[in-house]
């Protein structure tokens, strides 16, 4: 297992290196010029030239890349073009909000998606199964921010049960204030992942519960509950974990629009603001951080395969 983990971790190194190169070059190819943006609208050509020199943009491409990538390794992503604040600290300030949103959504996804999927698999083609499948299709057709708008109107404005905008940290409003500011956005972000997880769970359990070894446990008189949980769950887990891992990607993407709708000061809202301002170092940092998050989650997913299924450790 340790060898497997080490191999998996090492294989991420070239990917991360290539990702950093790709992202850097992508931004290099863009028509936006950091010096022009930073100097402001009424800058003279001399001023722009001065800013360019100050930002180090006259250095050759490769030396700028190594500067940036070297900083990345130290956790230094450069400085915002507008606030002269460090990109790293701005992102770190915002991450707890998004992490809270992701946490609450993930809890909803697992608590709702898994049981729904198992229930559908226990009674395939029943009205429950068909109803759940239609419900899942419907959930997947509403983009997160649209669902967010609907929820904000329904449960924030028409029925004022939850605050329609704003974020309350645990320090300010305690656990209940924190949670109530996150309920609506978390449902908006979680709806599609719930549907997807339920579908995947149903499929995996259907496969496993039809297998011979499960029939054998039933035949020897094992109670249905332990058949499903002990023999079903373990074998159905790998594809379910795969889909769960993919949802982190989805939640990160969904947070962009949903945080905007609910005015949550998180990572996604920062992305929108920086993109609108064309704050190049900030956008570059955001893309880099989200890439690292995704790569780390993928590694964790792969490691969990090793835990769940020893055959996969090879």
């Amino acid at each position: 297992m340790i060898a497997y983990a080490a191999r998996r971790l090492l294989s991420a190194v070239p990917l991360l290196f290539f990702l950093s190169l790709f992202v850097f070059l992508l931004f290099e190819l863009m028509p936006a010029d950091a010096a022009v943006i930073s100097a402001g609208e009424n800058a003279t050509p001399e001023q722009i030239e001065q800013v360019r020199e100050n930002l180090g943009l006259n250095e050759p491409l490769w030396s700028r890349y190594f500067d940036w990538a070297g900083g990345l390794l130290h956790g230094d992503l450069g400085t915002s073009l507008f606030s002269s604040q460090s990109v790293t600290s701005t992102i770190l300030e915002r991450l707890p909000v998004t992490a809270s949103l992701a946490l609450v959504s993930m809890v909803l996804v697992v608590l709702i998606g898994l049981p729904l999927g198992v229930m559908a698999a226990r009674h395939p083609n029943s009205w429950l199964d068909r109803g759940l499948s239609s419900f899942a299709s419907l959930c997947m057709s509403v983009p997160p921010f649209v669902l967010g708008l609907l929820l904000a109107v329904a449960f924030g404005i028409l029925l004022p049960w939850f605050p329609p905008t704003g974020y309350t940290s645990v320090a300010d409003g305690g656990i209940s204030g924190w949670l109530s500011s996150l309920v609506l956005p978390a449902i908006a972000v979680a709806a599609v992942p719930i549907a997807e997880l339920a579908r995947q769970t149903r499929g995996s359990f259907l496969d496993v519960l039809g297998a011979d070894h499960v029939r054998a446990t039933r035949a020897k008189g094992m109670p249905e509950g332990s058949v499903v949980l002990k023999h079903g769950a373990k074998n159905a887990a790998v594809p379910i974990v795969t889909v769960l891992g993919l949802q982190v990607n989805r939640i990160l993407g969904g947070s962009v629009t949903v945080e905007f709708v609910f005015a949550l000061p998180g990572f996604g809202a920062l992305a929108v603001r920086s993109v609108v301002q064309q704050d190049l170092p900030m956008v570059l940092g955001i893309v880099a951080v989200s890439a690292v998050i995704v790569v780390v989650v993928n590694i964790l997913t792969d490691l969990s395969y090793g835990l769940l299924n020893p055959r996969m450790r090879r």
Binding site: L15, L252, G253, I286, S290, A291, V295
Partner: peptide, 8 residues
């Protein structure tokens, strides 16, 4: 490209 969150 596939490793990056598409929306971002």
């Amino acid at each position: 490209i596939m490793a990056l969150p598409p929306m971002i």
